[in-house]
Amino acid sequence: MTSDSRLEKVLAQGEFAVTSECGPPRGVDPDSIRDKGELLKDSVDVVNITDNQTSVVRMSSLSACVILKQLGIDPVLQMVTRDRNRIAIQSDILGAAALGFNNILCLSGDHQKFGDHGAAKNVYDLDSIHLIQTVKHMRDEGKFLGGDELKGVPRLFIGAAANPFADPFEFRVTRLAKKVAAGAQFIQTQCIFNIERFKTWMEQVRERGLHEKVHILGGVTPMKSIGMAKYMKNMVPGMDVPDELIERIKGVDKEKRAQEGIKIAIETIQQLKEIEGIHGVHIMAIEWEEMVPKIAEAAGLLPRPQVN
């Protein structure tokens, strides 16, 4: 074991992992995190806290992770390289470990253009692959990037993201291989709406034997409405929402569309369970966290296993 991560243990036991995430509030209220955490607590193994996702300013991931930890949840600290240089990044990694966090998800982050502070200067001292290398270097070599010895190493389970739907398609697996070579131990993928394309990507993953080197968790997001599906399709970078999916939701009565979205999510999870090399799911129910236990239950993912 490289960490005390509940996720690492669940995966090591060969169990199908379930992770979820919540976005911190755009204010100071800790209860909004607690409420989401309580909803997710018994249905998932770990909970990611996003880091100023879509470049909209929110409560820091580090702080929101503390609040989750107080509930007994093992949080996954998401960290983007957009807003921090290597000094701040290493400092936050030390802090995360000192606070007892066991998981980190290394990301580059959405460009600030998407958020509410488009005039900001971005940092990008490191990219997401460098961030993975940094955490691994600190943990396994016990050294800072600058070369000095750490006094106590951060025992973190290292995660990264993969987007099988971004372009160029043929290069996405190469990039995953680079993340694995850098030290990623688990991967949470972008939301999967186009399962056929995802299967093709997984074939390529298996061809390179990457499924044996890293735990891949498929990303699942329930669609609440036609509006959300269209927004995801047209406005969110790197999202592949097939027209058939939109048509399917459109095909049911308006009041039943959310239910149809849930149904699709459950079906997706069931299909993912059948794919060789998929070791779990990452359920991203955006501002709809109360649906996660229902989806997990219906997909046969409960109860979550005990770990030592």
Binding site: D110, Y124, D127, S128, I129, A166, P168, F171, R175
Partner: peptide
């Protein structure tokens, strides 16, 4: 994003 190991997921 001046990424040295791209492309990112936004391409």
């Amino acid at each position: 994003k001046s990424i040295l190991n791209g492309p990112c997921g936004g391409s």
